[in-house]
């Protein structure tokens, strides 16, 4: 692997790692979790502990179950065996727990999934108003705060269809942040974007990491994995095959499947 250049994240900003602190408080605890789609065993014996402040990148070949895994964490998919505990709340049949976890875990999708019939501001205030019961005025202030953070306050009264892909994805991040989540899940947030827009979204995610957010990110942006993540998880065929610190993961991958994957994705 020595002949492969190490990946760099596409950003102009200096990454300030000093504020990215991992604590020893557990944010997500997954133990012996299994999931089937009908007869298809999509996730097998997943064991994983996420500590508060961690930035975890999950990578792996297409169909390996990465999306399914992070979608289980906010119960968009239900698991059939094992345990998932998010912020001390176990995900089980109790719908109250599901609602509680969902309101504390933010999720960003590959295709943004903004609500096209609502303005940017309404997209951001909807959940705080209806789930958190925040007064409208206050919800709007919070929304403007986060829209400024993702650098698009001037678009607040437009509709999603009038924004570029990168802007839409940043709105989607702001929309999640308005719920003041303690954990953020990203499912390939940059895969549907052009290079210039990838950069704006990655910048936003880096600044989020610098604020100490706990993040689980499914992505093929290996530069982000190496320079922002504190841990990289490699999945294949529904299992966690390898996990390590980024430097080690890229310099000394241990399993053959990881080596193959890295050589393919980093290219020669």
């Amino acid at each position: 692997m020595t002949d492969t250049a190490l990946p760099e994240v596409a950003t102009d900003r200096r990454i300030d790692a000093s504020r990215m602190k991992v604590t020893d408080e557990v944010a997500v605890q997954i133990s012996r979790m299994n999931k089937w789609y009908g007869a298809f065993h999509v996730l097998r014996d997943i064991d994983m502990t996420v500590y508060r402040g961690e930035r975890i990148v999950i990578c792996g070949p297409s169909g390996s179950g990465k999306s399914t895994l992070i979608r289980c964490i906010n119960a968009l998919e239900e698991h059939q065996a094992g345990q998932i505990i998010v912020d001390g709340t176990e995900l089980n049949e109790d719908l109250k727990n599901v609602d509680k976890v969902r309101s504390e875990v933010g999720m960003v999708f590959q295709h943004f999934n903004l609500f096209p019939h609502l303005t940017i501001l309404e997209n951001c205030t909807l959940a705080p108003i209806w789930v958190r019961r925040t007064p409208r005025r206050e919800a709007e202030e919070i929304a403007m705060h986060f829209l400024e953070k993702v650098k698009i306050p001037e678009q607040a009264n437009k509709y999603p269809g009038q924004l570029s892909g990168g802007q839409q994805q940043r709105v989607a991040i702001a929309r999640s942040l308005c719920m003041r989540p303690r954990i953020m899940l990203f499912d390939e947030p940059t895969s549907a974007l052009d290079p210039e827009m990838i950069k704006e979204v990655l910048d936003t995610m880096i600044s989020l990491a610098e604020d100490g957010m706990t993040m689980l990110v499914v992505t093929h942006e290996m530069g982000f994995a190496r320079q922002v993540a504190n841990r990289v998880i490699f999945m294949d065929q529904g299992q966690i095959v390898e996990q390590n610190e980024p430097e080690e993961f890229f310099l000394h991958p241990r399993s053959d499947r990881t080596k193959l994957f890295l050589s393919q994705i980093l290219g020669h």
Binding site: N74, L76, D99, R102, S103, V105, G106, M107, F109, H111, N113, L114, F115, L126, A127, W130, V131, R175, S176, M179
Partner: peptide, 22 residues
């Protein structure tokens, strides 16, 4: 698109609210 249902769910909206609002 299914994404609309998922986005509403992921924000913690319950069934009736996500139906009515989204």
């Amino acid at each position: 698109p299914r994404g609309q249902y998922e986005a509403a769910d992921s924000l913690g909206l319950d069934y009736w609210r996500s139906m009515r609002l989204i």
